[in-house]
Amino acid sequence: MDEPKSDTAYFAVSVIGKDRPGIVAGAAEVLYRLGCNIEDSSCTMLAGEFAMILIVTHEKPFSKAHLVEEFVAYSKGMELSVFVRGLKRDEVEYHSPQGELCVITVYGADRPGIVYRVTRELADRSINITDLNTKLIGTSAAPVYILVIEAELTEGTSSEDVERLLHTIKEELAVEITVRIVTPVAL
């Protein structure tokens, strides 16, 4: 995304509802008809729901009320939850990760606190999470929890440092934790 422009209105939009074909097409149609641009987006299935998160823009003047109105009309009858929030300029600025990127994989018998304990440890070290997915697999008798985090390491932190950092949690929660560097290669 380019630098935020002062003559542009920025919004965060989320759309969540029971998964079925046409959710994206419907939301995209609303935006297209309004003349909005989709600047950034991430949409995925979560269990039986489909969740869309979008950053959209429109040239000023453009009211949030207008955007909400159109989305409410679209979501009516489709049982979709729509949320719209206006963004300030400093919220829109994107800073690409500067440090090494790593993927932290955590898995083990399901129990409370896996996400909390791991992410708290990272947050306390100012390690910024750039992506996070969880999934519950296995059987109801033996559920296995999987947590995959992509995080930006702080200057001078190695994947071994992170593994050491999470060692206590690994022992306490009886989970497997691996850390590997996935910093993109420029070709």
């Binding site: 993927v103 994989t105 999934k135 697999i137």
Partner: peptide, 11 residues
């Protein structure tokens, strides 16, 4: 697009 984890086909 995401981490190369196996994704369940049925929920």
């Amino acid at each position: 697009l995401k981490t190369g984890l196996f994704r369940r086909k049925n929920y």
